[in-house]
Design a protein around this nucleic acid. Structure first.
Lengths: 112, 112
DNA sequence: ACAACATATCAACACCTATTCATATGTTAG
DNA sequence: CTAACATATGAATAGGTGTTGATATGTTGT
């Protein structure tokens, strides 16, 4: 019996790795990561994201298209505006795990 | 009482976001992600990584430098060879969560 | 219908980065 | 010390990508 659970998708597959890397790359841009974080709490419109993060609506929309295509966020039309929110809770888990990683890696010697 | 635990690092900070994005960006390259995955199981030398992934030792070394600097992997010299392994278990958690995300996001309509 | 607003798309540029090849550093055995 | 191996580093290049500004699409009101 192994302690670690079997992953849902076989990691060895080329396609799976590329798909995973695509998602990580999407979160690897500070602007896009900010947009993701802004959408995690509550659905928010494109204009409000732009205003809160001090970005042009055009840029926000560009990033939202990528995030929507990658199924990180989903957009729901409500009148003129479109409200974006996280598609599921996994992204928050991923971010929390990474925050935990950043928070405590300083127990090894820092030899250079 | 909130259901979600407080993150270890305040996400709102600019530096924290950039640091997180840096880590995600590192995992956002398929070659680097493959290297990370190869090191997760057991410490492995640069040459063995290159051989297993069919990459040049030079390229592997380049990526390992970045991953070591970002504290994703650690290198331990053993004779002529240097064995790389994950610095902590968080990276595996991050990947597992992302795999879970990839595995089950197909419950919403796929309208295009 | 039109006007006003919200969002999306297009093209272009500047910047970054992954890869390759050559070379350097470091380690062990003889 | 030299030779052979393992890894690291440097420069150069090709391809990718974030950002901007202009324009287009879509929606609501009058």
């Amino acid at each position: 019996m192994k302690t670690k659970r079997q992953p849902t998708v076989s990691i060895g597959s080329e396609d799976a790795i590329v798909q995973l890397a695509d998602l990580f790359r999407l979160m690897g841009d500070p602007t896009r990561l900010r947009i993701i974080l802004t959408c995690l709490d509550v659905p928010i419109s494109v204009g409000d994201i732009a205003a809160r993060l001090d970005l042009s609506p055009s840029l926000v929309s560009h990033h939202l298209r990528l995030l929507k295509a990658a199924r990180v966020l989903r957009g729901e039309r409500r009148g003129k505006q479109i409200f974006y929110s996280a598609l599921d809770a996994h992204i928050r888990c991923v971010i929390d795990d990474m925050v935990a990683h950043v928070g405590e890696p300083l127990d090894i010697e820092e030899a250079e």
